[in-house]
Amino acid sequence: MPALSTELAYKLEQLLDLLRNYGRVAVAFSAGVDSTVVAKAAQLACGDQAVGVTSSSLSLASGELEEAKRLAELIGIRHQVITTDEFENPDYLKNQSNRCYFCKTELYTQLVGRQQELKVDVIVNGANLDDQGDHRPGMQAAKEHEIRSPLLEIGINKQEVRELAHYWELPVWDKPATPCLSSRIAYGVSVTPERVQRVDAAEQFLKTELNLRELRVRHEANQLARIEVPLEAMTRLLEPTTREQISRKFHELGFEYITIDLEGFRSGSMNAIVPLEQLQIAAGNAN
């Protein structure tokens, strides 16, 4: 087990104390590294009075629900799966730059409505200190539903989250970010079950065939796929046999055009087109 720095060990004690003070806790548990660390901390702090709740919906990538179940069992936290219906909301389907707000509103509304059933006093998420510097409309939804963000409250950043996961020997300590499938759809292009399923199938194909851990298939307008992979992996996609294999598969899935982004893989690249004013508003709402 790797050792923690004195500063992070102190933050960990603060985190556990904070969670104990919350009382009975439900963690919005997606199986990403942030919420997994919060779930582990909640289990240590609250024991049987902690529960991880995973949302199952069309926007969840293949394998993520199964991973959430495995992680909950590994951590030893009580676990419950709910179904969210964000695809029933026209504002979500419009896929404007605040799409995430409507998704999180659906999730948090359901969680708040189930507090008595879950037997919890407080609902928490995995937002960390670094999330304040990104376009995160979902944080406004959390604020409106009085969702607590213990990592953020203690001042724990993403790197420290990964260090805690490594310290606890959680297998997701180096897991790449895994945002919902709808985040791959270009703003202004409607989110539909068909499009998210197409993206999911395309990404699973690239992961399986090329053994890549980090990648995105961005669904642009006019059925265009924009593939993002780390720069060092780009030449593999351009090998004649591989290129033909990808083109054939993507056309089968319904993409008309297939491109490779020369800037490579980068999380949140869709936010590059969000006006600065909206980013500033979002940051102000999150504070």
Rank of each mutant, 00 (worst) to 15 (best):
V120I: 14
D200S: 13
N95A: 11
Q140C: 03
E169C: 09
H145S: 07
T192Y: 12
D131G: 04
V189S: 13
L164T: 13
L93N: 06
A142N: 07
K158D: 09
A142Y: 02
S190F: 00
E117K: 07
I185W: 06
A141L: 12
T105E: 14
D134Y: 02
S183P: 01
R184L: 03
E163F: 08
S149N: 14
S97H: 14
N98P: 01
T178H: 12
Q96N: 15
W168C: 13
V161T: 08
G133C: 01
S97G: 01
K119L: 10
W168A: 13
E160R: 05
L93R: 15
N95W: 04
L129H: 08
Q159N: 13
V199D: 04
D134N: 12
N98A: 08
L181Q: 08
P150D: 10
A201Q: 13
V199Q: 02
L206S: 07
N128Y: 11
K94I: 13
R148I: 04
C100L: 02
S190V: 00
L107R: 10
A201M: 01
S190E: 15
I156V: 14
S149P: 01
G113E: 10
I154D: 08
G126Y: 07
F102N: 03
S182G: 03
L111I: 05
A141R: 12
S149L: 04
G133I: 01
Y101G: 06
K175W: 02
E163L: 15
R198I: 00
E144I: 13
T178K: 11
L118T: 12
E169F: 05
N128R: 12
I147L: 13
H145N: 13
E106C: 05
V161E: 11
R148P: 07
A127C: 11
L93G: 00
P171H: 02
E203P: 06
N157G: 09
V199H: 02
R136H: 09
L111H: 04
R195Q: 11
Q197Y: 00
F102Q: 03
A186W: 11
C100T: 02
S149C: 12
T105A: 10
R114V: 01
K158E: 05
P193G: 13
T192A: 11
H145K: 15
R162L: 05
